[in-house]
Design a protein around this nucleic acid. Sequence first.
DNA 1: GCCAGGATCGTCT
DNA 2: GACGATCCTGGCG
Length: 197
Amino acid sequence: LTPGADRGPRLGRDFFGRDPTAVAADLLGCTLSARGAGGRIVETEAYHEGEPACHAYVGRTERTEVLYGPPGFAYVYLSYGIHQLFNVVTGGEGHGAAVLIRALEPDHGLERIRERRPGRPERELCSGPGRLTRALGISAADNRLDLCGGAISIHARPEADPPRALAGPRIGISKAADLPWRYCDASRSEWLSAAPG
DNA sequence: GCCAGGATCGTCT
DNA sequence: GACGATCCTGGCG
């Protein structure tokens, strides 16, 4: 665990309004903070309307509408009936794209996190997309929240501690499984949900 | 330590 | 009515 004091300014709309692969790579090393708890982003995945693993692939529905909206908003959905998964909407308005946050190195609000995940070893607090939402108290109530102004924020990474980015195939999908759109910070391998590559 | 299986429900066909 | 962008538990050795 590293101290969490060195966090940059809150990321703005321009950061998110780019290709999901660029945003996914650049989110490594940034800090995700939700209501007083959070940590360094160490694992992300990009999704784009043009490939079938993306929820936006089916077009605009009530569920996917947020993906087609302006960048910098949260897309939170229920996976397997149990787990909340947290995504950031990317790209320009009218394009359906997002980045899934898959793992954090927790670095602030540890007491709150441990309260939400009692009895868990440090490594398992935030090492997985369902785990980190539980750790930070993120739920479907946060769907469509503005990350550039709301109770969940993302902050620029410190220049002094850059990530070592590695790209590989995404996890847990059956379609478009060949695209290397999962990004890991290899300088934080112990906090990942799975080995890079 | 590894692996197999079950939990659980919103969304779309 | 089927299917997940997952996680946890229990059995085995």
